[in-house]
Amino acid sequence: MWKHYLVGLLVSIAAVYLFLRAAPPGQMLSSFDQLNLWWLAPATAVYVLSYCFRAIRWHYLMRPVALVKFRPLFSSLMIGFLGNNILPAHLGEVVRAIVLGRSEGVSKSATLATVVLERVYDGLTVLFMLLLVLLFVDLPVGQVEGSLITAKNLHTAGWMGLALFAGLLAALQAFRWQRAVSLKVMAWLMRPLPQRISAKVLEGCDAFCDGLAVARASDLVWIGVYSLCTWGVLALWAWMFILAFGINLGFMAGVLMEVVLALALLIPAAPAFVGTFHLAAAATLAFMGANPGVAGSYAMVIWLDHFVSTTLLGMYYLWRLGLGWGALTGKALQDKAR
Rank of each mutant, 00 (worst) to 15 (best):
M62W: 05
A89P: 11
M62G: 03
F53W: 13
L61A: 08
V68F: 01
N84K: 02
K69W: 12
A66G: 11
R63N: 13
Y51K: 13
P64N: 08
V99E: 00
G83C: 05
F74I: 08
A89F: 13
I98M: 09
C52D: 02
I98W: 04
G80E: 03
Y60P: 03
R63K: 15
L91Q: 04
F81T: 03
M78V: 00
G80F: 02
I56D: 04
V99M: 00
L77A: 07
R57S: 09
A66Q: 12
V99K: 01
S76F: 07
R57K: 15
R54Q: 06
F70L: 15
R96W: 00
V95M: 08
L73M: 13
H90L: 10
R96F: 00
N84S: 01
F81L: 04
R63G: 09
G80N: 02
S50P: 13
L82I: 00
G92T: 07
A97Q: 03
R54P: 00
Y60Q: 00
S76K: 06
I86F: 06
L61I: 04
A66W: 09
F74Q: 04
G80W: 00
L77K: 05
I79V: 10
Y60I: 05
M62T: 05
R63E: 15
N85T: 15
A66Y: 11
V65W: 08
V68C: 00
G83E: 02
L73D: 06
M78Y: 04
L87Q: 03
F74Y: 12
